[in-house]
């Protein structure tokens, strides 16, 4: 079966040490609707290390310690298929807490 080609655009926002490290607060990224492709395309603008920092390529999922949210919902809390839709706001945080 031929998969339909998806072309969506999402806004990625970086926070805390990730913002320091990649020197960018937010960027608009086009992708095929998958988290992996979104991050691969972002890494082209940021740098190669970005993909590996956020995504565990061998396990094909976002790294355990990263707080990865789509429209404010942590992907660990989203039931069912996780995909990027046009206009989504993807906020990525390093491990953090406070009080």
């Amino acid at each position: 079966m031929v998969m339909p080609i998806v072309n969506v655009s999402a806004k990625i926002l970086l926070f805390a040490t990730l913002r320091d490290k990649y020197g960018v607060r937010e960027l608009e990224v086009k992708c095929d609707g998958t988290v992996r492709n979104l991050l691969e395309n972002a890494a082209k603008t940021l740098n190669k290390g970005f993909l590996a920092r956020i995504y565990d390529i061998s396990r094909n999922k976002v790294r355990e310690d990263i707080i990865f949210t789509i429209n404010g919902r942590n992907i660990k809390d989203i039931k069912g298929e996780i995909g990027i839709k046009d206009g989504d706001r993807v906020a990525i945080f390093p491990p953090l807490a406070g009080g």
Partner: peptide, 23 residues
């Protein structure tokens, strides 16, 4: 990463954006 990097780098104020992000 939280007690060794996050809190020493930004203090507790680092929470403003993430708590706002989750609404």
């Amino acid at each position: 990463p939280v007690t060794g990097e996050g809190l020493p780098t930004y203090g507790t104020a680092v929470l403003v954006n993430i708590i706002n992000n989750v609404g």
